[in-house]
């Protein structure tokens, strides 16, 4: 699975209702996620990628694509550290 697929799968596994998700899906408008759902998603992403996420980094996230960008940046930071 590539990064996008892993993120979409993580989202699907942490939602009360099954729904279609793509890279353009808006978390609030399309997926009806509220701040508590987003908290659940952040924790699930931490598990999936074995990282710690600062919740404030997610405050500007609007779409699934934004999450992908954030995770890419985190991965890059990790690689640079190594």
């Amino acid at each position: 699975m590539n990064l996008e697929e892993r993120i979409i799968t993580t989202l699907k596994n942490n939602m009360e209702r099954l729904q279609e998700i793509n890279i353009e899906s808006k978390l609030k408008e399309d997926l009806a996620l509220d701040s508590f759902d987003i908290l659940m998603v952040i924790s699930a992403l931490e598990d999936e990628f074995s990282i710690t996420i600062n919740e404030e980094d997610f405050s500007e996230v609007v779409t699934v694509g934004d999450i992908v960008d954030r995770m890419r940046a985190v991965n890059k930071k990790d690689k640079d550290k190594r």
């Binding site: 942490n14 939602m15 009360e16 508590f36 759902d37 908290l39 659940m40 924790s43 598990d47």
Partner: peptide, 17 residues
């Protein structure tokens, strides 16, 4: 502290966390 919501009444999700 750290808060982790689990899916409503979902034991599998809770155990995973």
């Amino acid at each position: 502290c750290k808060i982790r919501p689990f899916l409503h009444n979902n034991l599998e999700h809770l155990e995973g966390i």
